[in-house]
């Protein structure tokens, strides 16, 4: 068993997550190795992993509150150690909720819970919401967006009921801004920040879609990059350049296999780790 995860991007399979298989495929599409890591395996095996990804889903049935039970799982202790050593860690959707509940994000004070992912606030609807959104990648030290140009706009879908980044402590926001931790913000196809639904799909403060730690190696993002890692996954009716590329790929199945906007997050990992292995 030893060495099973050497140089591999470990996708943590908590009971109840449901995006682990496609997340592994998306990681592989960026030229990296990926493997599933069952939550109760020996944490020491993670030591040699190139990076850790917490995929989306409903870990532990979102009992009590989304992500909170998984945040207390012993595997998170091991992941915390790696994160502090600078190992790349990405939490997607439920994974983001786990990172926030464990206090790794925003990480201003290690393991202090400074943020919440609260129930969506939307015009005309409530609860779960699945839709494509646009994200503006802000200038930041984040390793997971290294392949993006500052201010670049990419479409990536969300699907959640509790994704509203919130805090009642203004100083947390200020510190995150000062550190460049607000990596991803919901915007229009043209890149404008509009606080209203549906541009801001869940009522997040400051339109926040993703937050990294001050060092930039840990990122918690609500949108699902693995669902936007091939051009074929982009809806035809989407506005902006990605929608146009998708329309232009009609009747060309080869083109459909091209990379999509979300793959860039995984390519960033490859870039940031010197190609992992």
């Amino acid at each position: 068993m030893a060495g099973r995860y050497r140089g591999v991007v470990a996708i943590i399979q908590f009971p109840g997550v449901n995006c682990e298989y496609e997340t592994a495929e998306a990681v592989r599409s960026a030229g990296l190795e990926a493997g599933l890591f069952r939550w109760n395996e020996d944490p020491a095996l993670l030591q040699e992993a190139a990076a850790v990804v917490l995929p989306g889903g409903f870990s532990y049935q979102d009992r009590i509150r989304a992500g909170v039970v998984a945040a207390k799982d012993r595997i998170m202790d091991a992941i915390g150690v790696l994160a502090r050593q600078g190992r790349p860690v990405l939490g997607i959707c439920n994974g983001a909720q786990v990172l926030v509940e464990s206090g790794f994000i925003p990480g201003l004070h290690w393991e202090r819970v400074d943020l919440a992912l609260a129930p969506n606030v939307m015009a005309d609807r409530e609860g779960y919401y699945c839709a494509w959104t646009w994200l503006r990648c802000e200038d930041s030290p984040c390793l997971w967006t290294g392949a993006f140009a500052g201010g670049e706009v990419v479409p990536v879908p969300i699907a959640h009921a509790e994704g509203r980044f919130s805090t009642d402590d203004e100083s947390v926001i200020e510190a995150m801004r000062a550190n460049g931790q607000i990596v991803l913000r919901y915007c229009t196809a043209a890149g404008e920040i509009d606080p209203a639904f549906p541009v801001n799909p869940n009522g997040s403060m400051d339109n926040i879609a993703g937050v990294c730690n001050p060092e930039g190696n840990v990122l918690a993002m609500m949108p699902h990059p693995e669902r936007a890692s091939w051009l074929r996954q982009v809806p035809e009716g989407l506005a902006g350049s990605w929608g146009r590329r998708r329309v232009a790929a009609a009747c060309d199945p080869g083109k459909m296999e091209d990379g999509g906007p979300g793959r860039r997050f995984f390519e960033s990992l490859k870039l940031g780790t010197g190609g992992a292995r």
Binding site: N18, C19, Y21, E22, E25, A26, G56, D124, R125, G127, Y128, Y129, C130, A131, P157, A159, H224, E226, R227, S229, W230, R232, Q233, P235, E236, G237
Partner: peptide, 21 residues
């Protein structure tokens, strides 16, 4: 659309045409 967007139509990453499209 109210209904379609209440369901996860993207999980598994295989969607080409989604409900309503």
């Amino acid at each position: 659309n109210y209904v379609f967007k209440h369901y996860d139509s993207e999980v598994q990453g295989r969607a080409v045409l989604r409900p309503g499209e």
